[in-house]
């Protein structure tokens, strides 16, 4: 995406949030160089997922495990997310979709809902206002989901925050807030039905074009952390398609760093280089 000579020269990547694990001066630029090298190499395979979905599960458990406050767990999760997104966009992923708030979350206690809302709101502002990530990779940040369920002031806030990046075209970050996959399907059905009244045939593409992710490349890779093997109502329409790679990882989200993401990308590239997803498991079967 970025011109090679340009980024080759100034490949210093500034972390979005100062990491708690900086040990040596200069270790960041070394890591950035490595990341740059890896991204270009993976990109050379021409098998980078175009659209990646993330279910970022395990922030609270991480906090409990480390005896941190829940707030700090979420903070660590956010830090992890920004570093992973950076690697993804660097490697050529066009769209990333993250699950920030489920409609089901409204069932929780009002206090918790309020704090989750507040958190998601601050996150969106943090990403867009900081600007380093969004400017460097030309990311358009948008909130998708049943936005009408949000309070007016939250909505206005999000609108203001995403406005800043609306002219970016190279990549997209979808923040699902508040979202469920079933609601998305129903939303697409409503849109298709409304269009039909003006006289048109309904097909799978019609529904596709009324999804929240309309016009974006199809989902290639879906990652869920914390060892739970369920989709929890995230992108069910997209993930059920054949050929979508679903990775269920047995680590908590804040532990899922760029290194593991790199491994997943390598795995994806390797698998897809074998054409038609032919698996190694097939040879010398007895």
């Amino acid at each position: 995406m970025t011109d090679m000579t340009e980024t080759g020269a100034g490949s210093e990547v500034v972390p979005l949030v100062a990491g708690p694990t900086v040990e040596l001066p200069g270790s960041w630029s070394a890591l950035a160089l490595l990341k740059n090298l890896f991204s270009r190499t993976v990109r050379a395979s021409n098998h980078v997922p175009r659209h990646v979905g993330f279910i970022m599960d395990g922030n609270r458990r991480y906090a409990r495990k480390r005896a941190l406050e829940v707030k700090d767990g979420h903070e660590a999760g956010f830090h992890s997310m920004s570093r992973i997104l950076e690697l993804c966009y660097e490697a050529g992923v066009q769209v990333a979709t993250v699950y920030a708030f489920s409609i089901e979350n409204f069932k929780r206690s009002p206090d918790e809902v309020a704090s989750l809302m507040d958190l998601a709101r601050r996150r969106i502002r943090q990403i867009t206002e900081n600007g380093e990530l969004t400017d460097k990779y030309g990311i358009k940040v948008q909130a998708i989901g049943a936005l009408e369920l949000l309070d007016a002031d939250v909505l206005a806030d999000i609108h203001a925050a995403t406005e800043r990046t609306k002219n970016n075209t190279r990549a997209t970050l979808n923040i699902c807030f508040p979202y469920t996959g079933r609601e998305e399907i129903v939303h697409a059905m409503q849109g298709s039905v409304a269009d039909h009244v003006s006289g048109s045939e309904i097909s799978e593409e019609t529904l596709d074009s009324h999804l929240y992710t309309a016009g974006q490349p199809p989902l290639d890779l879906l990652i869920r952390t914390s060892g739970v093997s369920r989709l929890s109502d995230f992108m069910i329409w997209q993930a059920a398609r054949s050929g979508v790679d679903i990775e269920l990882l047995d680590c908590l989200w804040p532990e899922f760093g760029p290194l593991r993401m790199a491994w997943v990308l390598l795995k994806f590239a390797f698998r897809n280089s074998y054409g038609a997803g032919a698996s190694l498991a097939d040879d010398d079967d007895e």
Binding site: R182, I185, R230, L231, S232, R241, V244, L248
Partner: peptide, 20 residues
């Protein structure tokens, strides 16, 4: 199969389904 691929299984019906 060797790696999870839902192969077009009805999407509405995998909301909370556990995969193995």
């Amino acid at each position: 199969g060797p790696a999870l691929d839902l192969q077009g299984f009805p999407p509405w019906h995998i909301r909370l389904t556990e995969f193995f």
